[in-house]
Nucleic acid binder design. Structure first.
Lengths: 259, 259
DNA sequence: CGAAACTTTGAGTCGGATCAAAGTCTGTGG
DNA sequence: CCACAGACTTTGATCCGACTCAAAGTTTCG
């Protein structure tokens, strides 16, 4: 299993994902440290709880393949999916600070991942500035994502939500070389999508039907085709030009060398 | 103007706000460093843009009095208020990482605040571990808030949203000694509240009328009275027991000593 | 004191939820 | 390899919460 296999050249030059601890480096020492952190590999089935809420021995999870998500549950069963994580992403960095994750992490597909003891990672945070910086960027990127999701839920109607989510997914997968030509495999059910977007599965499905009829987005099983990305962007963009995309590129505006 | 005047004993013992750089410390060196960071005091009128989106010389803002918020604008004029900041809070920490703020910051009332050059703060982040840790906790707390807001917008109906927001505000103000006995001054218009909750002002107003009739929440002008906090909690809690409150107390579960 | 901004109320509409049932896919065991 | 169960998707009918539009009050502030 190649640690760096998930990556490709991104639109921003050869920049590793900000949300990942998993990246190629020329620095020998860094490479060794990362190698040590990412040594333990695991595999989980679909719909498995990878990390329990409040578990003090919860690991950091760095995804090699498959999709996972974090979620909040309400007492009456409603579920809000808070974040979605794709191959390459490192999940659970808040654990470095709090010692225990605030929200559970679950797999949406079969996943392979690196299992990292958060105490070991925490040590490295103290020792190595490059690692500290890396962890921070990931934390900040998570926050940026949360805030653009906030705008999506607070201000957008169902069509805008669906369109912008699929565009975001497409962008993120293209970054990783996991999508091209408007096509990708989506490791989510419509129920996941509904809980992600704050819609009912029934209504989400109707929006998807409508998009299919308009030839904007076809989702058959777990295969997604965006026949006309521009047109789909227009559906989302009519409301907020580049909300999704702007947030993404801004993550790379890192210039301060603090932390 | 006393730097520490905004604080009082919180429910968690004498713990400074995680979202603030402004706190009392016995450590002489820390106190001096903070004093230096917080030297410049400013005052702004209501409805003033304190920090422009993408401004490379944007400061960190530590609020002494008054309320401010960060927001995202859509091209057709819709506005989502992303976060609300009360006296004691430090706003704009993402600038430490990105060099320029992703979203604008605006005052909702007359505010007095400490103006901190983010480059100076960034230096201290590199030099001083205690400060680094502090900045990080604030960043993590912001993210936690964003995610509980996410759940509110994604899963809750209008009444639940209003109830949980007012409870959150009440708690945060009590922490700071700015509210007691179910009473506080709210430095927001109903339009602000609507943009915070993803509702129209008209509908928000109807919910408030309903709450008043039920003697759950009275908002006259900028004065808020919660005659029956328990009952109001029940409106919010029926859906999610302690969503708001849980997230708050979890912020203090800091045990790892990394960063 | 007047203008502008905000709040309140009313009437009507619509997007998305709910409830229900029929299809379809997936996986498992016989 | 087929049959069956359970999970997911699709469709239809109906309902209701929240939005829209509009206008009248009220507060705020110059």
């Amino acid at each position: 299993m190649h640690v760096t296999s998930a990556f490709s050249r991104s639109a921003y030059g050869y920049s590793p994902l900000p949300t990942s601890l998993l990246y190629k480096t020329a620095d020998r020492e860094q490479a060794n440290a990362l190698e040590r952190l990412l040594r333990i590999k695991r595999r989980s089935e679909k719909d498995t709880l990878l990390v329990r809420q409040g578990d003090w021995s919860a690991p950091l999870v760095t995804i090699l393949s498959g999709w996972v998500f974090r979620y909040a549950l309400l007492s009456d069963g409603r579920r809000q999916i808070l974040s979605l994580h794709l191959p390459g992403d490192t999940v659970g960095l808040d654990t470095l600070l709090t010692g225990a994750p605030t929200y559970p992490i679950q797999s949406a597909s079969v996943v392979t991942y690196c299992w990292t003891d958060h105490r070991v990672a925490a040590e490295l945070v103290v020792e190595a500035r490059w690692f500290r910086r890396r962890a921070l960027e990931a934390l900040a990127a998570d926050r940026a994502t949360a805030e653009s999701t906030l705008t999506r839920l607070g201000q957008c109607n169902a069509e805008e939500r669906v369109a912008s989510l699929f565009l975001e997914l497409y962008d993120r997968l293209v970054e990783r070389g996991l999508a091209a030509d408007g096509q990708f495999k989506i490791e989510l059910t419509q129920i996941h999508l509904a809980d992600l977007l704050g819609l009912t599965p029934v209504h989400l499905n109707r929006v998807l039907q409508r998009f299919r009829a308009r030839k904007l987005l076809v989702m058959t099983g777990h295969q997604v085709t965006l026949p006309d990305v521009r047109a789909l962007e227009y559906v989302a963009v009519a409301a907020y030009p580049g909300m999704t995309r702007m947030a993404r590129s801004d993550e790379h505006l890192v210039t301060t060398d603090a932390f």
